[in-house]
Amino acid sequence: MTAIDDTRPEIATVEAMIDGVTVRVAEGTTILDACGGRGCGIPTLCYGETITPRNACRVCMVEVEGSRTLVPSCSRPVTEGMVVTTRSERIDHSRRMVLEFLGSSVDLSLTDHVEEWNAEYGADPTRYGPEAARVDEPVRIDNDLYVRDYSKCILCYQCVDACGEQWQNSFVIDIAGRGFDARVSTEHDVALPDSGCVYCGNCIQVCPTGALMFTSEYDMRQAGTWDEARQTQVDTVCGYCGVGCNLRLHVQDDSIVKVTSPPDSGITSGNLCVKGRFGFQHAQNRPTAD
């Protein structure tokens, strides 16, 4: 009988100094993760829980000794002997500019943490005045399941990557156009039902700004009845097939109002198919009065 070698390969680590504190992390760890990941105090927008970021938003920039330019902490791996500063006048200035540019050109009202960051960095998105260029487009409502409001979109690429090579492999949407005219778009900007969309909703799951939204949520917001304080979340398992995807039901007043999947679920990593994502109505068809 051959003995099983159960000694684990040693993980290579690197040592660096972050804000004056020495840290040792596994090789390949990003600066942001070395700092504690999301919520560690460094703001992030295009860095999602389940998507490798394209570092498109530049709000997470930090200083690295010896680097002429600021460095995106969400993507730059820590290297041996690196000296990092996560807060300085230069960094604050950069974050303030990014928040003001984004905030003046799109609607960030549904983006988590933006208000606190604006206060923290002294960002005033209104300072470019009412004439500032602004993406102002009608909400695209072209199917029954979800809406697209690109006046909220920061072009973070997360939906593109969720639909494309990072998760769904459908490649239905991409960023088209350039500069201020750049938009997430299907081919020729056709409506979703005319595209190859399979309505997995994985793009909605990763969108940080609310640009992509369940129609159920959109309608309730329009009617003024959406109220997260009244909502509970229930984790369950999808009953449609044998895979056993984890569902997180968002429930308000005894009705399912949207479905997500826990990003840390080992089965789904936050991804679902159309049935798990949108096929919940049967669970709450109430008998009619008579």
Binding site: G164, S170, F171, V172, I173, D174, I175, A176, G177, R178, S185, T186, E187, H188, S195, G196
Partner: peptide, 14 residues
């Protein structure tokens, strides 16, 4: 490639 990807590239250039 998907049509959306080709459209994305074609629309990039002036």
């Amino acid at each position: 490639a998907s049509p959306a990807e080709i459209h994305a590239v074609a629309s990039f250039y002036g």
